[in-house]
Amino acid sequence: MIRIKKTLHNSTLKNNPVLRQILGICSALAVTNLMMNSLIMGLGVIFVTGLSELTVSMLRKHTDKHIRMMVQVLIIAWYVIIVDILLKLYLPEISKALGPYVGLIITNCIIMGRCEAFAQNNKPLDSLIDGIASGIGYTLVLLVIAFFRELLGFGTLFGYEVLGSWWTRWDLMKMPAGAFFMLGLLIWITRSLEARKE
């Protein structure tokens, strides 16, 4: 139990994949204009990371060293297809808004990175938890960026109006540049906090 808690803490906060390791920001930024999109994308990534790590870990003794990258990519792609089909079926609107970025979960470096760094050498249960934790860490960052972008850019949160018509919408936040600035600021803040702690 303690071990599980430690893995959770390490992978979500201490080694946050986006902020600490700068992995997976390709897809992290594109979907952060609205909180709903980010949440769904995050859930998709949690699902794919968790289950791919579980599968990779279960197969780790049966896969040859030379083909393991290929096997990992195929496993990840398989779960991404499941996510894509589920989204198309139950949330067609959001599936359309996310567009190619669902498919791009495959090339999200977090998943490959964790499979290679953790699942290759650990037991299936630990790997599952590590995958879910990394996914949660990723989702948290997405949600924080999306919170500010949606609030300042549209005046809404999850589509509900929060700031009334008195609020001048920041068009910058709707544009890609806003996402880059938010991520830059977030990295700055976390790094400064850490430096102070040390």
């Binding site: 700068i22 540049a177 806003g178 996402a179 880059f180 600035f181 991520l183 830059g184 600021l185 990295i187 700055w188 803040i189 976390t190 790094r191 400064s192 850490e194 430096a195």
Partner: peptide
């Protein structure tokens, strides 16, 4: 600034 070095400043530059 310390916390902004390397990656932080790169991301902000991409924004600009």
């Amino acid at each position: 600034p310390k916390g902004l070095e390397d990656i932080g400043i790169t991301v902000i530059t991409i924004g600009i």
